[in-house]
Design a protein around this nucleic acid. Structure first.
Lengths: 106, 106
DNA sequence: TAATATACCTTATCTGTCAAGGTATATTAG
DNA sequence: CTAATATACCTTGACAGATAAGGTATATTA
């Protein structure tokens, strides 16, 4: 069983930030991690992922830089900002409230 | 604290069906019930609600009929179908899986 | 040498939600 | 009696996040 987009919608940014809370990372790695953590039951669409990076960076929640090293394909690394950390924490609280409310409603 | 639309998105139909699982009802009543159950922390936008009714009826998950009785404003009642009950149960399972996955990811 | 994995990006389209507008009736407060 | 509020439904246009489908480029493995 897989999950509809509308159900995950709105959590994409929080999922990315959660990963960045544990250290800098890049798109491909984050998505692989999502796949692994969910035992292949979920992964982000490429476009969704990179779109979310743009939004997060524009909002000041992450910063980006091209990775050093000349082996392999180039990587754009992302780093969470202090604002991003605050935003992440707020989203976690919101998720806990959401679970509570939806469990009451359905 | 309130909840962003994107977080609830996708649950509207299940919330409506959950209400109809307990008996026939109409839009205004369903929305009032949502408000009460969540202590005014959440309610559906009118347009969202009536849009969802259309989708659910087109999909065969609910049927509708105008309420009898000549007191008060007219009401369009909705009734959940067998297909709707199946769909509701599927959505509940999906929600349980979603909670599990998101809790792992964020 | 071909296939696969890594790694990033853009564009057009889809879909649920919402703001803002509307109609109409019944009840309550002044 | 009248104004305000509650009940009850509906439509339209716009928004925003997600997706499909396309692309580029390098490194590794068969």
């Amino acid at each position: 069983m897989s999950i509809r987009a509308d159900i995950i919608r709105g959590h994409t940014e929080t999922i990315i930030l959660a990963h960045l809370m544990k250290g800098n990372s890049y798109g491909y790695e984050i998505n692989k991690s999502i796949k692994e953590k969910t035992n292949n039951r979920y992964e982000l669409n490429d476009a969704t992922l990179y779109c979310a990076f743009r939004r997060l960076e524009e909002s000041g929640y992450i910063t980006s830089f091209w990775g050093e090293g000349n082996s392999g394909a180039r990587r754009r690394y992302y780093s969470i900002t202090n604002q991003g950390i605050e935003f992440y924490k707020k989203n976690i609280e919101e998720w806990n409230l959401t679970k509570e409310l939806i469990d009451k409603l359905i």
